[in-house]
């Protein structure tokens, strides 16, 4: 196994609907991402970017194909092992932040550590450092409904990287933010990728973000192509 590769996927197929009215969303997608690489997938709305990210992030089983996370065949594992793999190796950032409304920003950030069985003190220390890093430590004890969209997305990013995952999958991380806030979040993502030699796979519409990454793919008609 090539130790440089954190994620590789082969021949990913996914369709929705019944046999007679099926929509082929992914038609044999292949992708490989190395340590520290920031990769973007662009494509129009409904092109299957989220489906691809969910399949690669072990959230949605593809009809066919194989996903290796740090060499482990994710879809061949039991659901418990797969959950563990997601917890340790993969971070997620969603377009609508998806923070848990009943928990403060800090508690949200701590959540992956708590799921992993770490103590509250340990998780709290890590969360404080990350909230400081993403610039929202002053909002640590606020509930998501009381902070701005940009602050929510920064908390979501901190939550995605608290377990020091090998790869972060971000689905339209700036899709729901205004231009200024988007720029801040994009800058933060690029800095975090550089700081931690962490790989990012971003599904995005943002030309600014797509132009700043190391490699870029486009998804259209179910086919994933690298844009040279």
């Amino acid at each position: 196994m090539n130790r440089e590769i954190v994620l590789s996927a082969f021949d990913i197929h996914r369709s929705y609907g019944s046999a007679d009215a099926s929509i082929q969303v992914l038609r044999g997608a292949d992708i490989t991402i190395k340590i520290g690489e920031v990769v973007a997938v662009t494509g129009p709305s409904g092109s299957g970017k989220s489906t691809l990210l969910h399949a690669l992030g072990l959230l949605e089983r593809p009809d066919r194909g194989k996903v290796l996370i740090c060499g482990e065949n994710g879809w061949a594992l039991s659901s418990r092992k797969r959950a563990e793999l997601r917890n340790r190796k993969i971070g997620f950032v969603f377009q609508f932040h998806h923070l848990l409304e009943e928990f403060t920003l800090k508690e949200n950030v701590m959540m992956p550590c708590l799921i992993a069985g770490e103590s509250s003190e340990e998780a709290s220390g890590k969360a404080d450092r990350l909230l400081e890093r993403v610039g929202i430590i002053h909002r640590a004890s606020h509930f998501p409904s009381r902070v701005s969209g940009g602050e929510k997305q920064r908390a979501a990013i901190a939550r995605a990287i608290i377990m020091k995952p090998d790869i972060v999958l971000a689905d339209e991380p700036t899709g729901n933010l205004d231009a200024d806030t988007s720029a801040g979040v994009e800058k933060l993502i690029m800095e975090l990728a550089e700081e931690g030699s962490r790989s990012f796979l971003l599904a995005t519409h943002s030309q600014d973000l797509a132009s700043a990454v190391h490699r870029r793919f486009s998804l259209g008609s179910g086919v994933l192509r690298e844009v040279k």
Partner: peptide
């Protein structure tokens, strides 16, 4: 949706 998020973060089915 919260449960979906928790599962994405590694919450096992149990």
């Amino acid at each position: 949706r919260d449960i979906g998020v928790m599962r994405a973060m590694g919450l096992p089915p149990s």
